[in-house]
Design a protein around this nucleic acid. Structure first.
Lengths: 222, 222
DNA sequence: ACTCTCCCTCAAGGTTTCGTCAAGCCCGCG
DNA sequence: CGCGGGCTTGACGAAACCTTGAGGGAGAGT
């Protein structure tokens, strides 16, 4: 099993200034942030992307935050932090078991938002049976653990691993890897990737990085 | 091991004479003290300010100390020292696992309060084995102790250390360090950081500040 | 089985990055 | 005004790392 330690967060709000503000602060903490602008899109996004935490505004086009949350809860147990502009809605969030984990009344300070998100993410969600992962990738620490042992990677090796470990099982084309690691306007041989992948495999052991001939690489998802 | 010593303490009591007395004694010890007067405010304060220790009276308006503690424990593992006027409540604090770390029966001597707070703060939150810290960073005093010996740092050296000691193990990019220490719009070479890190290492010894090639620095978290 | 393509391996050269040292500058203080 | 500590800058060396190239092996298709 593989663990990706940068949390994925979905922010749902229909006011784009708030959206961008929140996104900025959360990304600054090292998390991966997506944003959508209405309730239906939120439900779909959660279904596909399976974020770890959702920042959900109550007032939304299409379906409101409560309804969106109700539908999300039918298939996901992600953490949910609700945003509301009206103090009298707090009762519905807290009192009735809507399924939210925390709430925040607008206007709120970005610091407070970050603090609450941190608190939620620190909360252990995954019951007791903790499956120790064979491969743990922690972007914030830039550290990797393989088969329980810490491994020291170079910057390039780590970036490559991070790029494919973000979505285990998904094939990342070499071109995408080049772009992700070396930047958009790098001109050079795909072969470069091979060499670094080889070095990477030598360090973390075989069995993690799989080659997809003619396309690129992917992380084993078993 | 590394210790970050900016202890922040929250005192919760609805009798303001006691509040001020306690605050005075704790501040005299050099800690940062906040006070609130009821249970709900306490929960909110902890959520936002994340104090290291909470002195919590049992009898409170709104919600009592037990209920407040229950809510706080859903997102925080701060030390909690409970105050009670009734000896028969001690059973609930000690016996039932309310989640308090210690208690004190009124009336208590301020000296005793201080002693218990000190004891709690000294207590390592992580497991039993009490490891004396090799590196202690105290932002309030701007003082540092390495391997048990006090070390005198310059302002710049201290700021750099503080920036990476805030989250041991987390890699801080050079750019972020420049911004944290020299301000947002400083123009200059990253190389500056190197030199100060070198001086810092010369003072506190090797083994604390790790360099992550191509990225930045981090504090060893082992 | 053959061939062609793609990928892995290995090693050497070149480049970047970081640590060290030393000299100059700025500022507060005597 | 002179002194001293600390900050900054630059140069240099060493180490780490990236890149490149050539050769070999495995896979897929014919």
């Amino acid at each position: 099993m593989v663990s990706w330690m940068s949390h994925r967060i979905l922010v749902v709000d229909d006011e784009s200034p708030i959206l961008n503000l929140v996104r900025g602060y959360l990304e600054h903490e090292g998390w991966t942030v997506s944003t959508v602008g209405d309730g239906l899109a939120a439900v779909e996004h959660v279904r596909v992307e399976r974020p770890d935490l959702i920042v959900l505004d109550v007032m939304l086009p299409e379906i409101d935050g409560f309804e969106a949350l109700r539908r999300i809860r039918t298939f996901s147990d992600a953490y949910v932090l609700m945003l509301t502009a009206r103090a009298d809605e707090v009762d519905r969030i807290v009192g009735l078991s809507v399924g939210a984990d925390d709430y925040l009344v607008k206007p709120f300070s970005p610091r407070e938002l970050v603090a609450r998100v941190k608190a939620l993410l620190r909360r252990p969600r995954t019951a007791a049976g903790a499956p120790t992962c064979d491969l743990v990738v922690d972007p914030a620490r830039r550290s990797v653990t393989a088969h329980g042992a810490a491994v020291v990677l170079t910057a390039t090796e780590f970036d490559i691993l991070a790029a494919i470990a973000r979505d285990p099982g998904i094939v990342v084309p070499r071109g995408d890897l080049l772009e992700a690691v070396w930047g958009p306007e790098f001109v050079g041989d795909d072969h470069l990737v091979d060499v670094h992948v080889a070095n990477l495999r030598a360090k973390i052991g075989d069995g993690f990085v799989e080659t997809v001939r003619g396309i690129g690489y992917r992380l084993a998802s078993g």
